[in-house]
């Protein structure tokens, strides 16, 4: 995928481009809003990682100009304003996703992959399946072969995170940040304990695990639909 990285902080831009290149994308970097808009209109990248605070033209303006010119590039906004208002402003302005600084590079790469439909999909809808396990999200119910499995609230959340993006490997930190929203006392060991409990409840007949440990990286669903 051709990705345009627009970020005025050169170091951050370099790291973003590096991480995206490592996961197989070709990248181009711009540090200025006006320049970024011109590049985006000329080269028509598949995806733009767009910072909000930019010299000469802010990210929101770049986004609206892009949409006015019928650009079909997907856009992930980066911002240091984590509040609801600027998130809504970005999404309403036509951004496809939104990431608050400071973010985990894994998270950014995962989101880029989801938007590029390359190796990453997000399970849509209220009912998610993984093998013979069915999760009804609004009813917070998990069944296997029609038989209900009692899960605690956190076990359910962990399973939901994994089942929603079955191709993605989630690090303990990713899961931690998603469940508890912020850094605190819950160390990553808490996640391990929940995964352990989940595995016990979800153990397959042949003893195989539904959740696979990826060494040095994290966890992933072992079976997909």
């Amino acid at each position: 995928m051709n990705i345009l990285v627009v970020e005025d902080e050169p170091d951050l831009a370099r790291h973003i481009a590096g991480a995206l290149t490592r996961s197989g994308h070709s990248t181009e970097v711009r540090h200025d809003g006006q320049e970024a808009l011109e590049t985006a209109l000329n080269r028509r990248p598949d995806l733009i990682v767009l910072d909000v605070n930019l010299p000469t033209m802010d990210g929101f303006t770049v986004l609206s100009r892009l949409r006015q010119s019928q650009s079909s590039s997907r856009v992930i906004m980066l911002t240091s304003h984590g509040d609801v208002e600027s998130r809504l402003r970005g999404l309403n302005g036509g951004a496809d996703d939104y990431l608050a600084k400071p973010f985990s590079m894994d998270e950014l790469v995962a989101r880029v992959n989801v938007l590029g439909r390359r190796g990453g999909t997000i399970a849509e809808g209220d009912v998610i399946k993984a093998g013979d396990v069915v999760m009804d999200v609004p009813k917070r119910k998990v069944t296997r072969k029609g038989e209900k499995i009692e899960l605690s609230p956190r076990e359910f959340e962990v399973l939901q995170i994994l089942m929603k993006e079955p191709a993605r490997v989630f690090s303990r930190n990713d899961i931690c940040e998603r469940i508890w929203q912020r850094e605190h006392q819950y160390d990553t060991r808490t996640v391990e304990i929940f995964i352990m409990r989940l595995r016990k409840k979800l153990e397959l007949d042949d003893g195989a695990n539904l959740i696979r440990t990826v060494r040095g990286a994290g966890y992933q669903m072992a079976v997909t639909e």
Partner: peptide
């Protein structure tokens, strides 16, 4: 503060 922290995090992760 968020921008330098974001740079630090990205740098350390890579």
């Amino acid at each position: 503060l968020k921008t330098p922290v974001a740079v630090m995090r990205a740098g350390l992760e890579s």
